[in-house]
Amino acid sequence: MTAGSATPTTVADYEIVEMLGEGNNGRFYRARPPARLGLSTEFVALKVFGERVSEQAYERGVRELRAFASVQSPYLVRIYDAVLEDRFAYAMEYLPLGSLESPTRPLRRDAVLDALEHAALAAHALHESGLAHGDITPGNVLLADDGGVITGKLADLGLARLLTPGNTLTGIGSAGSVEYMDPEMIGGARPSRRTEIWALGATIHKALSGTGLYGELPDDQPVLAIRKVLASAPTIHPDLAPDAAKLVGDCLAAGEARIGTAAEVAGRLAQISR
């Protein structure tokens, strides 16, 4: 189920510059876009899916990406183009500052909180437009520099379920991404506001405390990672400030105690002491 490991020099008519990372069913590359797109930017980020997809799955992917691109939010990455060669790939804006998981420069706490708030607003905008992201993680909260102010942008809409029905967790990247998934989803629930708020809570926890809700997960052993997540309750790090810990707890809560909308999560993030 894995693709070859070498970095290609081209993908379709994109010229690959370097690999940026792996995650959510594929790899990201920094690439030069083809002239047909008429873009003024030198680089785009190109996501190349690891698994073969059929024409029908590609068309479903294009429909979903277009729906994503039509959502009005300054906090969603812009997607330019989808291509199908032997693999499915799509191009989006390239953000050189990296993500909350691996920023290219150290971030101050207020910038982290801002980026998290933006990600929650972006998720809410998706939900209001009938879409669920499906894979909210710190690695998918990208960072843009708007005149010295850090802006968070939610990227990498989870297309795996759409491309391969039944797919719950994607393979490429680390098995650790299971720590951002609402256990109800591992049990078969589909992405919803409720599961996304859980993922936002896990993302906030990781970004602010530096540790996952389940401690260290065996990255290279998916079965053990899943067993650990299913067998243990998430634990909020004791060093987290009380207001942040309360927010994370309310995102993970069972039943009706869980926060109802991502906008509410954003509102609570805005109130956390910087």
Binding site: R36, R66, A69, D81, L84
Partner: peptide, 20 residues
């Protein structure tokens, strides 16, 4: 050029979906 390519940003959306 690739076998298939579709513009994404600014492309028409078939139908607006209702909120989740």
């Amino acid at each position: 050029p690739p076998r298939r390519s579709e513009p994404i940003f600014g492309a028409p959306v078939e139908e607006r979906r209702s909120p989740l």
